Computed example of a mutant assay.
Amino acid sequence: MKKLSFLLVMFLSQLFFAQANRFMYQVTMKPDSTDRSFVKSEVAYLDISAGKSLFYPENRLKRDSLFARMRQTQNFNFDRDQMQSLRSNLDFIIEKDYGTQKKMFKSRIARDQFVYEEDRPMIWKILPETAKIGDYKAQKAETDFAGRKWFAWFTTEIPFQDGPYKFSGLPGLIVKVEDDKNDYSFDLKETKKIPEMVAIDQRGSEITVKRLAFLKQQQQFTSNPAQATAIFRGGGMRIKADPAHRKKIEERRKEEAQKNNNPIELK
């Protein structure tokens, strides 16, 4: 009986550690510096498992699920309003490797997936101030990163030295982080176990570049969206856009670029 109980405990322990942890953050943004009353909010996930983490928007997971159903049914007709509602201001994925300390940023430009390794250290100053943030006792810290001053609250009650976006390196999980101008904030709202980390659907070629090269490429595409000569639907399936529809896409991208003039990273 004792041997059976021991084996049962071992099995349950292995099952627990085989699972991944999902931390759900409410992300609040003011993307337009000319209209600070306009606030956008969406949910993003930080999944942690086996020495690594993945940060991505919830809408990305919903879009991938929709595309998967299209491939399964071979029905590539979709509600454009539904697809529009699943667009995200957090159009990127961030992978952190705890062993190598590498942070990989992935974002789509036109039909390709660009990847760069974050090359700037995040240096924290831990402050004496403490507070109750949600259900957790947390301590305050600050850092200057990418042109903004950030204030973070971390808790040692969750033993992961990680957090949303590129934030990490504090002695516990970051449960809240915001910049001093109140343009961006990440607030932990919920945690749960999931069977395993998701496999994000990566359509298009993956191109690894330096961070500055990515920013240059992104700027070129923003200023000249006509470079995108096709739209992509489903799992790598390319469908040529007619000129009228392509023009509409270009106009929409230019309009979005004008309204999204307050990025999370200023330099």
Rank of each mutant, 00 (worst) to 15 (best):
D91I: 03
I94V: 10
L46H: 01
Y98S: 13
N75L: 12
N77H: 13
T130F: 08
K125I: 05
F114D: 00
L66C: 04
A68S: 04
W124Y: 07
K132G: 03
D64H: 09
P128Y: 03
Y116W: 14
F76I: 07
Y45N: 05
W150D: 05
W153M: 03
A44C: 14
Q74I: 09
Q101W: 02
E142T: 13
Q101F: 05
L90R: 02
V43F: 11
D112G: 03
A141T: 01
K149S: 13
E42V: 05
K140R: 14
A146D: 00
F67L: 10
A152S: 07
L127V: 07
E118G: 03
A131G: 06
L86H: 05
A110M: 04
A152H: 01
A44Y: 09
E118Q: 06
G51S: 08
Y45V: 05
L90Y: 08
S53I: 04
K102L: 09
F55W: 08
K96Y: 14
Q74Y: 14
R108V: 13
K52S: 14
R63S: 06
V39G: 04
L86Y: 12
D91H: 06
T100S: 15
S85P: 08
F67H: 00
I126M: 10
L86I: 07
A131Y: 09
F105S: 02
R71F: 12
K132H: 03
A68G: 00
Q139V: 05
D91V: 03
W150Y: 13
A152K: 00
R60L: 12
K106F: 10
Q101Y: 04
R111P: 00
E58S: 05
W124G: 09
D47H: 07
T73A: 15
K132L: 13
R87M: 13
F105V: 06
F67P: 00
T73K: 15
A138N: 01
R63I: 05
E58A: 06
L90S: 07
K103S: 15
I123M: 15
I48E: 00
G51C: 11
W153A: 04
T130C: 08
R69D: 15
S53D: 06
E58D: 06
S88N: 02
K125V: 06
S107A: 14
K62Y: 10
Y116R: 01
P57F: 10
L54Y: 00
Q101M: 06
F105Q: 00
D97E: 05
Q113V: 13
N89S: 14
D135H: 10
D97Y: 07
